[in-house]
Structures are given as C-alpha cells and as structure tokens.
Amino acid sequence: MTITKAIILSAGQGSRLLPLTRDVPKCMIEFNGRTLISWQIAALVANGVTDIVVVTGFRTERVEDHALQLYRETGAGIRCVFNPFFQVADNLGTCWIVREEMDRDFIILNGDTIISDEIVARLIAGAQDAITVTVDIKADGDYDDDDMKVNRDASGRLHHIGKRLLPPDTNAESIGMLAFTGEGPAIFRNQIDQMMRTPEGVERWYLRAIDIIAKGNRVGTASIEGLEWQEVDFHQDVEAAMALTAKWVAQGRYGR
C-alpha cells in the first residue's frame, strides 16, 4: 500500500491554550526547533507522503507563510486551503471545505497531534479497508472524558467511535489520524455532504461521520500501541510534547 496525499486540519486557534495561542495558531507552536505542523510534515514526508493540503483558519497568513518555508525545506508539495467559517463550524465543516481534495487515497490528520514516522508507516501498512482509523490502546483501560473512544472487535473492525462511549464499550482511542483508500474517499465525501445539509452539521466533529459510516460499512483500525505521539490540547500537553520532541532531537531523528 502506498499513500502519497495527506490533509491536515489546522483551522482552529486552540483556545484552551490561551494565552499561548493568542496570536499564534496551535499548529505553529514551536517544540524544540520545529513547529507542530513541521513535526507532522517531517513524519509524513519520511513515508513518501509529499502531496500535503493544510486547511487553515485562525491567522491563516502565518500558516501560509510557514507552509512556503516548509516546501523549501522538504520539497513536498504543501498547499493551504482557507476555511472562512472556522470560527462558527467544527471540524466536519473544515472537512467539507476541502472535500474536493479527497480525490484519491489520502490520510487525514488533526492539526494538534504530534506523530512519529513509525505511526505513519503503521497506518499505511495497515490500511486494508476503505477507511482505517489509527488507534492506541491503554493497558489499564482508563480512558478519560476527552479521549475519542473506540469500540472495535477482535478482527479490528470499528463499531463505534465518540467521546461519549461508556467504559465497558471502550477498548481503544482514536489519535485523530485516518487513511481513506479505494472507495473510502467517496464514502467519506458523501457522508460529509449529507451531514452538512442538516441544521446541526456545522456543530459536528468529522469522526461522527465515521461512526455513522461504520453502521453500514466495514471501518478498519490500525493499532499503534507502543509508539509515540502527543496530542496538544492543554497546557500540560505542551510540556509533554516538549519532552517527546526533545527526545527525538537527541536521537537525531528527522534531521534537516
């Protein structure tokens, strides 16, 4: 399996990180010499993903300028698509804005998650279904309210995904990174379009679309248990991301 395209959802400000994000988009926070989005692109490019679309919103001009810099550094084709509704729509709306870019096999990635190149490789290798959700497993089974919880069976098929899953129904968590292959992009585009035609569409997360799709289609999962990643939502996450990326710098990973 080869996937060469990715869509990064980076339209939000990251208000839970204020004042850090008062004038800087969350994806532009710097961690040990690289911005968050630069760490993401390094991991993608290391796996041959070189056609990258970044959906912007808050302080879009900063991200656009940075994307040009990253293009010069990596050689990857990095394009920005501005979402003018980023202040009033959740990330389902962000996906809808960029739906025309879902024209072939692609990876979608939340703009607030630092991932390793091994995680990208694991997802690409494990993308055996039309839609594949990257999941991590907590050994103690202690998933908190903010985790995007997943229920999957022994074959890896996803049955439900959402923050409101009850503990007995939860056996994994989504890290906000999915692969769409074969008919997967068309299935996802159609579901997004249907949901955005409803009054509550702008208030939805795009993973709600995956939950609905899973009721009638097989949605697979790829476990990245044991691999390193860090979501950056709260101030304590910034400290954890600093520690993780410092470790990678010390190891000489993603050398420039």
Rank of each mutant, 00 (worst) to 15 (best):
G126W: 08
R99E: 13
G184S: 10
I114T: 03
Q194I: 12
K138L: 15
C95V: 10
P185G: 12
I192Q: 04
F106V: 09
D105Y: 02
G111M: 10
W205R: 04
D144C: 13
I161L: 11
D117H: 12
L207Q: 02
A209H: 08
D142G: 02
K138C: 05
N217I: 01
N190T: 07
T113A: 12
K138G: 03
D193E: 15
I78L: 11
T198M: 15
I124F: 05
F106K: 00
E200S: 13
N110V: 01
G201C: 09
W96Y: 15
D142I: 00
N83L: 03
Y206F: 15
V150S: 06
R208S: 11
I210C: 08
N151A: 13
I119D: 03
I107P: 06
I137T: 10
G77W: 08
G111I: 02
I124V: 15
C95M: 15
P84G: 11
R208V: 10
F82S: 10
E203I: 00
G111R: 05
D129R: 00
I97G: 02
A89P: 01
H159D: 06
I107K: 02
T134W: 02
F85T: 02
F180M: 09
V150L: 09
A121W: 02
G111Q: 06
D146H: 06
H159S: 09
Q87G: 05
Y143T: 05
L123Y: 07
A209D: 03
R189N: 12
E101R: 06
R99N: 08
T132L: 06
K215N: 10
E183R: 13
I107L: 15
V98K: 01
N151E: 14
Q128M: 00
V88L: 10
A209M: 07
I131Q: 02
D147H: 14
D153R: 01
D146V: 02
D129W: 01
D105S: 14
D145C: 02
R164A: 14
V133S: 06
D169N: 07
M195K: 04
I210Y: 03
D147W: 14
A214G: 10
I107A: 07
C95Q: 13
Y143D: 11
I192V: 15
D90H: 13
D129M: 00
E183K: 06
E101C: 09
V133A: 08
A121V: 01
P199G: 09
R157D: 07
I131W: 04
A89T: 11
V202I: 11
A125R: 08
T198Y: 09
L166T: 11
D146N: 07
V98S: 14
D147P: 05
D169A: 08
Y206H: 13
V135Q: 05
P185K: 05
L166M: 12
D103M: 03
D153I: 01
L92T: 03
M148R: 01
V133C: 11
A154K: 00
D129Q: 09
K163T: 13
D112P: 07
I161G: 03
V81C: 06
Y143N: 07
N110R: 01
A154S: 11
I212Q: 13
K149R: 15
